[in-house]
Design a protein around this nucleic acid. Structure first.
Lengths: 153, 153
DNA sequence: AAATTTTAGTTTAGTATCTATACTAGTTTG
DNA sequence: CAAACTAGTATAGATACTAAACTAAAATTT
């Protein structure tokens, strides 16, 4: 376990894995605080993620939403209640199945949705501006591989 | 806001930012569940991150640890208490400053630490095995830029 | 040297996010 | 039609944090 006896490749792996770890830590830290999304006001991370998952669809079921966010129905139930009280989403009864509820964004919700998407896109743009076309392509490949690997974990 | 009217570059940004978002979601999901680290047993994400931050140092102050983890002293105080009760870390009084406490890993803590590092390194190795030398280098560059950008957010 | 301020750490109450479990009430199926 | 399934809600508890109030020791002022 002596660092001086390590092969270069092992040291590279050690460094690389640490850098990746640091990136995720940085991300985690960001995800701890509420942010303001345009006129929609400050929203907690899970609130805005839920809004993003609902997207501009005409209506999505609670259970679909749960699957999309990879959380339980109970979690979605709670967060939708909160979003409804903030008038960001609305519930409409399903026309055929009276157990089901269709969730959709209100106008205020759409404002938050767009502000959030824009934020993300500006972030990505700022990153890709620092890369050339080849590098972007490789970056995309890496993102995809990373996502795959994380899914397996 | 019509997708068909978008320039290719805008569409690429939209796609890219979505992929990046998905990656972080995948990561967040992983970070929700406890994992087993060798003989040290199952540890929650924040427990193992704290152990990783303590590392194999001979002794680190609570306040240093808080800074390293980017959390408040109170948060560290709580988690160290839990780790101490699990016999993964130990407190020793500071030789000169009797207010201060030195935190270090026990043998069991070191086992967890090493198992965690190994896990991360295996993950990184699996990723880099799918890339050639140039791609790894670009990937590293991107990780670094991403970390910088996130820090600014 | 006494008084003040700063620093190290703990404690407590409260918030956000999630899970698991138990539940209600419609829907489908045998 | 009864049994089993499905959609969603409610609630209690876990985790992981913050903010604020606190204790006690150390450093600085006066």
């Amino acid at each position: 376990m002596n660092r001086k006896n390590m092969e270069p490749s092992n040291r590279n792996i050690e460094m690389g894995s640490r850098h990746l770890g640091r990136l995720f830590m940085q991300f985690k830290q960001l995800e701890r605080h509420p942010r303001v999304f345009g006129e929609a006001g400050p929203l907690t991370p899970s609130e805005i993620h839920t809004i993003d998952a609902i997207s501009c669809e005409s209506g999505i079921l609670m259970s679909e939403l749960a699957a999309r966010l990879s959380v339980t129905k109970g979690a979605v139930s709670q967060i939708v209640k909160k979003l409804e009280s903030k008038q960001l989403v609305q519930r409409t009864p399903h026309p055929e199945d009276s157990r089901a509820v269709m969730i959709s964004l209100t106008e205020k919700g759409i404002i938050a949705f767009q502000a959030h998407r824009e934020l993300h896109q500006n972030f990505y743009k700022e990153l890709s501006d620092q890369l050339n076309q080849d590098e972007i392509q490789i970056f995309e490949k890496c993102i995809q591989k990373l996502t795959e690997l994380l899914k397996k974990e």
